[in-house]
Design a protein around this nucleic acid. Structure first.
Length: 307
DNA sequence: AAGCGCCTCAACCGCGAAATG
DNA sequence: GCATTTCGCGGTTGAGGCGCT
């Protein structure tokens, strides 16, 4: 037989989580660490299915999650990664470790897609290129990124948070936010993640151990590879070549200045082999370069947009 | 002020992959 | 190798907020 049955389907609560439920879940994970979701409802007494618990943790309660406005750099990364990977939100999220796949997906569907569509159909017409061989519309994204940067600059994070506070009557989101913030504070006040890199048998990995989650939590950068040791989330050999990561990942990840967070979601965090002389492709350079919008126009035009 | 429609995003659903005995 | 179950991902939904009339 396989694993024992999952949670009982009868009496499962659905819908928004309450602060009380969040606290129970967070407390439990502090003690036992994330994982073994099947046991969570049973052990916590939560009337939620394991799936719901996992989702709540990974998308909302997990420390290190950055909420609020996406920066223009993040937008640029999402657009280009989406063009390369398609709707592989989990894979895209590995390059934006502070954002959840759900957030990225929502942001793409509600903001970026519309922006690009508008750009495609309207004012951006003159900058659209058509691949004469594939007959697929392709974007010049440079002006798109610049336009978005202008848009974003008009709405500062401060404005975002103050507007959130205005809505704090619906305080559930903010109380969950508070839980997340508390966790972040707690992690900050705890000894700094004992982060170091190591080369073992030619394999590269970064470890971050956190004291305070009951048992020390070992979080490793996993190999970005799926079953049979292949990079399953990467659709082609070309992509595998282009996206072969380097050890710049730790210090040059999407947002500088939050190095301590790193890849907290061990299920998503990539780990790569053969880092002796990692080839840093153009794409990587671009992705991890803050000067994202100054990318060579000609190269960017080669990236098709898939909706 | 009320009604309506649009927008956002947290959460759910279904499916395929992985894990386990 | 097979059957069964969990896990993780991507697509979708719907409640609530917001703006317009």
């Amino acid at each position: 037989m396989g694993r024992p049955p999952c949670c009982d389907k009868v009496g499962i609560k659905k819908g928004p989580w309450t602060p009380e439920e969040d606290i129970i879940l967070v407390s439990y994970i502090q003690e036992h660490g994330p994982g073994n979701w099947r046991a969570v409802p049973t052990n916590t007494g939560l009337s939620r299915c394991s799936k719901s618990c996992r989702l709540r943790w990974t998308n909302y309660l997990r420390p290190g999650i950055k909420r609020g406005n996406f920066t223009s750099h993040e937008e640029g990364m999402i657009i280009h990664l989406q063009a390369l990977l398609g709707n592989k939100w989990a894979a895209i999220a590995t390059y934006l470790p502070q954002r959840t796949d759900n957030d990225i997906k929502n942001y793409w569907n509600t903001h970026l897609k519309k922006k690009l569509m508008k750009f495609q159909t309207g004012m951006g017409h003159s900058q659209m290129l058509y691949d004469s061989t594939a007959n697929h519309p392709q974007f010049s994204l440079e002006s798109c990124v610049d336009q978005r940067r202008m848009d974003r600059n008009t709405i500062s994070n401060q404005q975002y948070f103050s507007s959130n506070e205005k809505n704090s009557g619906l305080a559930y989101a903010s109380s969950a936010d508070n839980i997340s913030k508390l966790l972040q504070e707690w992690m900050r006040s705890s000894p700094q993640p004992n982060q170091h890199t190591s080369h073992n048998d030619g394999k590269f990995q970064t470890e971050a151990s956190f004291q305070g989650f009951g048992e020390p939590m070992q979080i490793k950068h996993h190999e970005y590879q799926g079953k049979n040791g292949t990079h399953d989330d990467i659709p082609s050999d070309e992509l595998e070549r282009n996206l072969s990561m380097s050890d710049h990942l730790d210090c040059d990840s999407s947002e500088k200045g939050d190095e301590n967070i790193g890849f907290l979601d061990h299920q998503k965090a990539p780990k790569f082999e053969n880092f002796d002389h990692p080839p840093l492709s153009f794409l990587e350079n671009w992705l991890f370069d803050e000067g994202v919008s100054s990318v060579d126009q000609e190269v960017m035009d080669q990236i098709p947009i898939m909706f």
